[in-house]
Computed example of a mutant assay.
Amino acid sequence: MNDDLPDISRLASLLADPGRSRMLLALLDGRMLPASDLARAANLSAQAASNHLARLLDGGVLRVESRGRYRYYTLADSQMAHAIEALACAAHGTSMLRPTLRPKGDPELRLARTCYRHLAGQLGTRLCEAMQAQGYLQRQDGNVFLLTRSGARWLEQALGVDSGQLAGKACLDWSERRDHLAGALGEAICHAFLTQALVSRRPGRRSLLITAQGRQFLQQQLGLAL
């Protein structure tokens, strides 16, 4: 056996339990949640949820922070989020029920949502494609997206984002089966959309509301009608 190969079976075993997978999907929007919220998302008792969370922490799938009397859980990093999103894409054709998500045909979820800390759904995929069509974004070496000079200027003028050396990554969208923009660049754009009220969060859900201001921005800046 080649000891240099990563032990994906260990990670797979942690993700295989339905309760644990439901908690991980509930964290896929990048939030930090207490154990009580995760227990409800997975339909588990407090004790069962605590046991599952301990295993996920030991396995490096989650990290936890203490805030006063409470402990808040979140995904370990963006790579873990990408892995879970990819598995959700592969499982999209099944009848698996997802925590805080309606069935796969939910129009709100498919229109706009967060995937960890970047924009996903039709909003995310069409934004990524429109930026490429405008010459703002270029795909390099498979899954890497780089801003062009005109893209960096547009990002600063239109969204107030100082792109610096930010690069993006392609993330396969589970509902659209096309790529949306992830990585540091995707996170910066998502943050700008939220802080400038182009989109707003729906309480307790991953789906986003595209505001009237956001629809106007997309139409005027990129010719997108959503």
Rank of each mutant, 00 (worst) to 15 (best):
S21W: 15
I8T: 15
A26C: 11
L75D: 03
S78W: 11
A26L: 03
G19C: 14
A54E: 12
A16Y: 08
P18S: 06
L75R: 12
L28V: 04
S45I: 01
V64I: 12
L14D: 04
A16G: 08
L38F: 09
R63K: 13
M80K: 08
R63A: 07
S13N: 08
A54P: 00
M80I: 14
D37P: 01
A76D: 06
V64L: 07
Q79G: 15
M32D: 00
G59T: 13
Q79E: 15
V61D: 01
S9Y: 07
A48G: 03
Y72W: 10
G30N: 00
L56R: 09
D37W: 04
L75W: 01
M32P: 00
A81N: 02
A54V: 04
S36I: 05
L14F: 07
A48V: 07
R10S: 14
P18I: 04
A35N: 01
R40K: 11
L62K: 04
S78G: 15
R22T: 12
G68F: 01
L27H: 06
R71A: 09
S9F: 09
L38D: 07
P18M: 06
S9D: 10
N51S: 13
A81L: 06
Q47C: 01
D37G: 02
G59K: 10
R10Q: 12
S50I: 00
S45H: 04
L25Y: 15
R20E: 09
P18W: 07
A49D: 00
L62E: 06
A41W: 11
R71I: 01
A76M: 08
N43S: 14
R67G: 05
D58C: 05
L24D: 00
S36H: 01
G68R: 02
A12P: 06
R10L: 10
L33F: 02
A16T: 06
Y72F: 15
G30R: 01
I8L: 15
A39S: 08
D77I: 05
D29H: 01
V61M: 06
Q47N: 04
A26W: 04
